[in-house]
């Protein structure tokens, strides 16, 4: 269950990242309050994911954290590309 949780947290991180760069990814600009929320999400979600992953043990946790980063990033990128396509 830890991998799906870290994966979802990374999806959230990348979503916040995308909303913080609206012109780059073709989204409308967020209001200042929304930008602040997205910034907090981009910082807090990976930290929570790391805490969760660390529960699996040092080496395994770090591997899991990075793997979920990579796969979540890939999923978001493919979704963005298909949306634009």
């Amino acid at each position: 269950m830890i991998f799906p949780a870290t994966f979802l947290l990374w999806l959230m991180t990348f979503s916040c990242h995308v909303r913080l760069h609206p012109h780059r990814y073709g989204f409308a600009t967020l209001a200042p309050h929304g930008q602040c929320m997205a910034l907090v999400g981009r910082i807090a979600a990976p930290a929570v994911a790391l805490v969760l992953a660390a529960r699996m043990g040092g080496v395994t946790g770090v591997l899991m954290w990075f793997s979920s980063l990579s796969i979540a990033g890939l999923c978001i990128a493919l979704w963005l590309a298909s949306r634009r396509h």
Partner: peptide, 10 residues
């Protein structure tokens, strides 16, 4: 970092 999930297939 800014382009981390950027993919322009079109």
């Amino acid at each position: 970092v800014p382009d981390i999930v950027r993919l322009r297939l079109s």
